[in-house]
Design a protein around this nucleic acid. Structure first.
Length: 536
RNA sequence: GGUCCCUUCGUCUAUCGGUUAGGACAUCUGGUUUUCAACCAGGGAAGAGGGGUUCGACUCCCCUAGGGACUGCCA
C-alpha cells in the first residue's frame, strides 16, 4: 500500500497560524473551553479506553520537563479512567544505562507517577520492530537502500562547508548556491526506484518511502492543525544496516502494540510526528491522538539546562528539599490553568485536567513561586512524614536524641515557617544549636548588665514553674513583667537573644516551651549564671 | 539556509471582538509585633513593533522583530 496524504487544495483553509487555530478561536464550536476543540479525526475507537504513556530514553536522570509531560500523561489517563504506561526507549545501547533506568523510575515513583504496568523495555522488542519494517517493504511503503553512512556524512559535511562559505563570503556562486539548495532538500535515495537493482552483497538499510506528492495534516491538541508537504520530509531510516530498529520505527510499533491512544510528549517531537504518521498509514494502523506540550525554559527564557540550576527531578527532592505534591501542583500550573486556581490538589487536578487547556508557549521555571507552592504543602503535610524526610537529609545527620525529639515535637509549629526542607534547617536551628549559644549581631547588643540581672531573676521565676506549657509560660512572663513594671518588650529581645542567638524563632513563650526546662535553664545560665550565684 | 511553532505585568496565567485588562508569585509602602517569618491593608507593574479588517481589536488577517523546534544508520 502506498502512503497517501490528502490532496493539497483541501488544506489551505485548515492551516492554523498563531491564535487562529481551532483551539483558540472556536471554529464554530461554542461552549466552555474544554468542549471547544474537535476530536482528532485519526481517532476512531472508543475514547473511553484511553491509554497514555511516558517513554524516556535512559541516558541520564529524569528531567523536570520530562516529569511535566509524564504528569500530563498520568493526569489524562486518570481523568479518563484509562491506563498510564511506561516504556524505556533504550534502542541506543551505547548511551543507555541501567543506572539511568533506575534513576528515572525512582524519580517517577517519587512523584507518584508510576506506570499501571511494569515498564516495557524497547530493546526487547527489536525483532518485532524488524518484522514491521519488512512488512512495510512488502507493502511498498518502505525499501532497501544501499547508500552508505559515509556517503550521507559526506553529504552533510559538504552542506556544512557550503554554509560556512556562504556565511564568510555572504554570497555564493550560482553553482555552489544550487548545490547547497539541493543538499538542504530532504534526502531521496536512488533506490526509491524499485527497478534499480541493489549491488551484490551490499549492506542496506530499510527506508520509509515518503509519497511524492501531497501533504500530511496533523491535528494536535496543543499545536493545532498543521500541514506539511511530503516533499519536505526525508525517507527516514527504519532499520539500520545491522538490522536494528531506529527510534522512529520503534516508537510507532510500540505505541501501536501497547494500544496507546493518546501520545503526549515534548514539542521537540512535533515534527517527528510527520515522519511517524506514514508508518501508521503504511501499516494501516489506527493513529493516536497527539498532544505536543512545550518544553520548560529557564528563568532567562532559554531552554532549561544545567546552568540554570536544577534540571533533574532528584535534585528537587534531595538538594532543594521540595515535596512531590508541590512539584506536581507547580508543574501542572506551568502552561496550564483552571481559572484563577493556584493550589490544585490531585483530586481536583484529575477532575479538571484537559489537554485542550495547555498553552503552546514554553513557560519559565520560577523558583520563588515553587517555594510558595511548596510552603503551602509543607504546612499541610503530616508531621511524622515531614520529620522523617528532614531527618533523612545529609545535613540532619549526627543529631542527638534530645535534639531529634525536640524538633519532632516542634514540627507543627516549625513546618509553617519554611518553604522547603533547606529552609527548615534554618527554622529549626534554634532547637539544634549547641550551647553555649553564640550571640550574633543585634542579639549580642541586647545582653547588658541590666539584662543579665533581669534574666537571673526570670530564671528563678521559671525554675519554680510547674506547668511547662506555652500558655503557662506566657502567663508567667506576663506576671514577671507586671511585677517589675515593665513591658514584655523589655525582656523579650534579651530572652530571645540568649535562647536562640538571633536565629529565626517563633513566639518567645513557644520557644521556651519547645526548648524544654533544662535547655532553657542552661541557656539562660550561660549568660546570667554568674549573677545568679552571686545574688543567691 | 529551509520548514514549522511561539510572543498579555519581572514570572506563571485569565481574557473566546465591547472589561477601569483579572488573579497568583515576586516587589514596594504602611500596620501589627518580643527577632525572623506569618498575618492585615494598600501601591506600582502587561497586550513585542508596524500595518490592515471592524462602529469597536489583546482577541481576526498581513508584515517585521525576537525566541524555540526539527533538518542523524541519536532519542
Amino acid at each position: 500500500m502506498q502512503v497517501v496524504g490528502k490532496p493539497r487544495q483541501q488544506n489551505g483553509s485548515l492551516r492554523a497560524k498563531g491564535k487562529t487555530c481551532q483551539r483558540r478561536s472556536g471554529c464554530g464550536l461554542q461552549g466552555p473551553r474544554s468542549a471547544r476543540r474537535t476530536p482528532s479525526p485519526h481517532l476512531r475507537w472508543n475514547p473511553m479506553t484511553v491509554v497514555t504513556r511516558f517513554a524516556p530514553s535512559p541516558t541520564g536522570y529524569l528531567h523536570i520537563g520530562g516529569a511535566r509531560t509524564a504528569l500530563f500523561s498520568w493526569l489524562y489517563a486518570r481523568a479518563k479512567g484509562g491506563k498510564f504506561l511506561l516504556r524505556i526507549e533504550d534502542t541506543d545501547k551505547e548511551r543507555s544505562t541501567q543506572a539511568a533506568i533506575d534513576a528515572i523510575i525512582d524519580g517517577l515513583n517519587w512523584l507518584g507517577l508510576g506506570g499501571d504496568e511494569p515498564p516495557l523495555l524497547q530493546s526487547a522488542r527489536a525483532d518485532r520492530h524488524a518484522e514491521v519494517a519488512h512488512e512495510l517493504v512488502k507493502r511498498g511503503a518502505a525499501y532497501h537502500c544501499a547508500v552508505t553512512a559515509e556517503a550521507l556524512q559526506a553529504r552533510r559535511d559538504e552542506a556544512e562547508l557550503l554554509q560556512k562559505k556562504k556565511a564568510a563570503e555572504s554570497q555564493l556562486s550560482p553553482g555552489d548556491a544550487a548545490r547547497l539548495a539541493d543538499l538542504m532538500r530532504p534526502f531521496r535515495s536512488p533506490w526509491r526506484d524499485p527497478m534499480l537493482p541493489l549491488p551484490e552483497g551490499a549492506s542496506t538499510v530499510v527506508r520509509l518511502r515518503m509519497p511524492d506528492h501531497g501533504e500530511l495534516i496533523v491535528h494536535d491538541r496543543v499545536q493545532g492543525t498543521v500541514a506539511r508537504a511530503y516533499s519536505e520530509l526525508d525517507d527516514l531510516i527504519l532499520l539500520r544496516s545491522d538490522g536494528t530498529p531506529t527510534y522512529m520505527l520503534a516508537v510507532v510499533v510500540d505505541d501501536h502494540d501497547m494500544g496507546v491512544t493518546h501520545v503526549i510528549r515534548g514539542d521537540d517531537h512535533f515534527l517527528n510526528t510527520f515522519r511517524q504518521l506514514p508508518i501508521y498509514l503504511g501499516m494501516e494502523w489506527q493513529t493516536p491522538d497527539y498532544s505536543h506540550v512545550p518544553l520548560i525554559h529557564g528563568p532567562d527564557g532559554k531552554k532549561l539546562s544545567k546552568r540554570h540550576g536544577a534540571t533533574a527531578v532528584d535534585e528537587y527532592r534531595d538538594v532543594l528539599g521540595y515535596l512531590p505534591e508541590a512539584i506536581r501542583n507547580y508543574l501542572l500550573r506551568l502552561g496550564w490553568s483552571h481559572g484563577d486556581d493556584e493550589i490544585i490538589p490531585d483530586e481536583k487536578a484529575i477532575e479538571w485536567f484537559d489537554l485542550d487547556g495547555l498553552n503552546k508557549a514554553p513557560a519559565r521555571l520560577d523558583f520563588a513561586k515553587l517555594d510558595s507552592v511548596n510552603k503551602h504543602y509543607m504546612a499541610l503535610a503530616d508531621d511524622d512524614r515531614l520529620f522523617g524526610l528532614w531527618l533523612a537529609r545529609p545535613g540532619s545527620q549526627g543529631l542527638s536524641n534530645d535534639v531529634q525529639t525536640r524538633i519532632r515535637a516542634a514540627m507543627p509549629h516549625l513546618k509553617t515557617r519554611a518553604a522547603n526542607l533547606v529552609q527548615f534547617d534554618e527554622v529549626a536551628r534554634f532547637l539544634k544549636d549547641l550551647r553555649p549559644i553564640l550571640l550574633t549581631g543585634k542579639a549580642a547588643e541586647q545582653v547588658n548588665e541590666e539584662a543579665r540581672s533581669r534574666m537571673a531573676a526570670l530564671l528563678q521565676q521559671l525554675e519554680s514553674l510547674a506547668d511547662w506549657s506555652e500558655p503557662a509560660i506566657k502567663e508567667e512572663l506576663a506576671q514577671f513583667c507586671a511585677r517589675l513594671g515593665i513591658s514584655l518588650g523589655k525582656i523579650g529581645p534579651v530572652l530571645r537573644a540568649i535562647l536562640t542567638g538571633g536565629a529565626p524563632s517563633p513566639d518567645i513563650a513557644l520557644v521556651i516551651a519547645l526548648l524544654g526546662r533544662n535547655e532553657v535553664f542552661a541557656r539562660i545560665r550561660d549568660y546570667a549564671g554568674a549573677r545568679v550565684s552571686r545574688s543567691s
